[in-house]
Design a protein around this nucleic acid. Structure first.
Lengths: 248, 248
DNA sequence: ACAAAAGTGTTCGAAGTACACCCATGT
DNA sequence: ACATGGGTGTACTTCGAACACTTTTGT
């Protein structure tokens, strides 16, 4: 038993909410559930759940582990298959009519090929991919609209640092696919020629590497790339300041 | 009374911890308190406290308000005098030996002139400015060393976007002072000539504006600048994509 | 053959870096 | 007068945007 006790103040309930992003038909999409119970019954909401807190002083799960658990429950995806990170905490009084809750929002970036199998999580009544462009943020349950809005700002800011973009393409991808990630996130077209030169820089920097095979894509076959495994950096990378991936 | 109740699961205690940064003698510094009580008695820690949660379902304070309240209690500074923002939530089991706690970390950037008067908060046993360069992160209480490390990464990333740097200089400042903020945060010297051209761009973008007076600084008097009040943007700013300030 | 997509080259401007240099002032 | 810091100019480079252009495939 610990030698000192936490003061006996009122505690909020703590939940973890997930912002699971992927690309569906080239459009940035977010996994939402339709609530089957009040409050906000019938409204769309972020998947999530309560943080597991052990009975004793030390038990329970870390926030990151709670996010990974929720992700697995809702989508069947393991944390190795996605890019996971924390967005922040939200706790305005009144955000949940049932009582005081704090939520810690996590984002998860899912490759589109892995996203195909995501359906009917055990926890959620009905999980679906919603295109971000079509989403009415004000219609979401709780304060989830505001959380999604913040996540989109972070995502758009950090997709250019390549880390986030690489998390949203299949393991091997074409230049077009990676470009479409940027286009989907930012919502506007990019010059294919300029983007290819950016790809070449990513190769120079050791972030991605070309594969031997090409892929038939309807017309002329395209070269493919894959994310470089860490450690296999080129000399030019070592000289540059490392491009930190940062949060989402 | 609400029509539905939160499930009766165990709840963690929720605290708000403050990372109060300023420049002391040109060195990036952080406000720390020496703990007077166990656990970690005698060790340095971030100032902070428990989130106020109302007895009913709706009462209590928002996370931002808790951060502002802690800041006021520890430093006497109001939220209008500082730049305040959330860093994130930390909740590893075992981070507090007394029991399960989640902390939401906030940063506050304090202008050096305002930091002069910060001393002996009502809450803290003994508050002091610690130079970040001299700090032994592993010696801090709880998991505060890791939190500080994360904050420094964010601060270094975002000081270049000008928003953070302007929060760490007096209301009117010289080019040298703003440059020293960048140097203090990044830990290396910058070319004064190039930095001056960056200043000129900040003027063009309407972020800062020159004042009429100059300041005697030992040798040749220096021109002074101030942060431009929002709304007084130049034409060039309106055309550009707005440079979001982002978190810390 | 032709359309569509892959891929290359060119030009321009914005902005970072390095460095030479002039200017104004307190001692 | 002169050292010190304030302030300007110049050359080089990187990188994004715009766009003309060639190459390679399927139909």
């Amino acid at each position: 038993m610990p030698y000192a006790f936490l003061p006996d103040v009122a505690r909020p309930a703590v939940t973890v909410d997930m912002l699971v992003f992927t690309l569906v038909d080239g459009a940035l999409s977010l996994l939402l559930i339709e609530r089957g119970l009040p409050p906000f019954r019938g409204r769309l909401a972020l998947p999530g759940g309560f943080l597991h807190v052990g009975a004793g002083g030390r038990g329970g799960e870390a926030l990151d582990d709670a996010a990974a658990r929720e992700l697995l429950e809702e989508t069947g995806l393991g944390r190795e298959q996605v890019t996971l990170g924390q967005l922040g905490a939200f706790g305005r009084p009144g955000r949940d009519p049932r009582g005081r809750t704090i939520t810690v929002a996590y984002y998860a970036l899912v490759r589109p090929d892995a996203a195909r199998g995501v359906r009917a999580g055990s926890d959620a009544a009905c999980a679906r991919w919603a295109k971000v462009a079509d989403l009415d943020l004000d219609a979401l349950a709780f304060d989830h609209g505001g959380i999604v809005a913040e996540a989109l700002v972070s995502l758009r800011r950090d997709v250019d640092r390549a880390g986030a973009a690489l998390a949203l393409v299949p393991a091997t991808f074409t230049a077009r696919e990676l470009r479409e990630v940027h286009e989907a996130v930012h919502g506007h077209r990019l010059d294919a020629a300029n983007f290819d030169r950016r790809l070449r820089r990513l190769i120079d920097d050791g972030l991605i590497e070309p594969t031997a095979e090409t892929r038939a894509t309807g017309r002329r076959p395209a070269r493919q790339f894959r994310a470089a495994q860490r450690g296999a950096r080129s000399a030019s990378t070592a000289a540059r300041p490392s491009s930190h991936v940062g949060r989402i």
